[in-house]
């Protein structure tokens, strides 16, 4: 943690704040999640810091619970896509040959269909529940992680120390988890941030289209959908999630940038 630049520190703080808010939502939120407390679209006041929404629920409460749901789904989907994508990517790189070809070509195929379109096609027959959403998002996103981790692992796989491990008689599992994984961690951590942001944007988009987190549960995309009618009357309730998403994604990006810079400096660059 020594020598952490100011921008990364700021990003890290804001990111942690958002996560703390998500975990502690029931303690922080001033009202109940779907409790109707006032009139429809009341302006911001001392009582309702951000005003009320289209049904008269407190918008700040909705935003806090919405953040909890959005961040939860995005984190789970990212965790799934990372563990799956990285393990499959390393496996493909380590085994090589037809296994590698088969996996890589199948990956190309899935990536050739736009993610959103594919998700819509699948969600048209599947029930829209949290596990299904996490599974669909995680599986579709793992194609991107697969591509990166395979590329990274192919480079590491030809290093002398991997050769040495093989000559020592270590199995493929050792090579994947003890030789390649530790050395591929830095670029993967930087990518983790980007994939997490992408997952936040993706679940928000799905919820906005009515195919994500279902009401009465709140989430950032859903808040936009619920309050969109207000825009025409000049009520900015629907724009609140924009603020939350932008601050969160810029903060995560700042941390990811730092992680990436550290990686390049580890590879014989300037010693920052």
């Amino acid at each position: 943690m020594k020598g952490i630049p100011l921008s990364a520190l700021l990003g890290l703080t804001i990111t942690l704040l958002y996560f703390a808010m998500a975990i502690l939502a029931p303690l922080i939120a001033p009202y109940g999640m779907s409790e109707i407390v006032g009139d429809v679209w009341e302006p911001a006041s001392a009582e309702y810091w951000l005003g009320t929404d289209n049904l008269g629920r407190d918008l700040l409460t909705r935003m806090i619970y919405g953040g909890r749901n959005t961040i939860f789904v995005a984190s789970m989907a990212t965790a799934l896509s990372f563990s799956l994508g990285a393990i499959l990517g390393f496996t493909a790189a380590v085994y090589g040959g037809w296994i590698d070809q088969l996996m890589a070509r199948f990956n190309d195929l899935v990536m050739s269909i736009p993610t959103l379109i594919f998700a819509l096609v699948v969600l048209s027959v599947m029930p829209v529940t949290l596990p299904v959403l996490i599974l669909v998002m995680g599986l579709l996103d793992s194609t991107r992680v697969f591509r990166l981790s395979r590329a990274v692992a192919v480079d590491i796989n030809v290093m002398d120390y991997v050769e040495a491990a093989r000559l020592r008689g270590e199995g493929q599992r050792w090579v994947i988890f003890r030789e390649i994984l530790p050395n591929a961690l830095s670029p993967l951590v930087a990518e983790l941030g980007l994939r997490f942001i992408f997952a936040i944007l993706f679940i928000s988009t799905l919820s906005f289209l009515g195919l994500g987190i279902q009401p009465p549960n709140a989430d950032w995309g859903g808040i936009v959908k619920e309050n969109r009618e207000g825009i025409v009357y000049g009520i900015p309730a629907a724009l609140m999630p924009a603020l939350a998403i932008v601050t969160l994604s810029i903060s995560v990006n700042l941390v990811a940038d730092w992680a990436l810079n550290r990686t390049t400096s580890l590879k014989g660059g300037r010693g920052v």
């Binding site: 988009t205 629907a238 924009a242 932008v246």
Partner: peptide
């Protein structure tokens, strides 16, 4: 900034500013 926002939110912000 513009890539940190989902398309639909960018849409509503622009609608709010230029149309409303």
């Amino acid at each position: 900034t513009s890539i940190s926002l989902p398309e639909f939110l960018l849409g509503y912000i622009i609608m709010y500013v230029f149309s409303v």
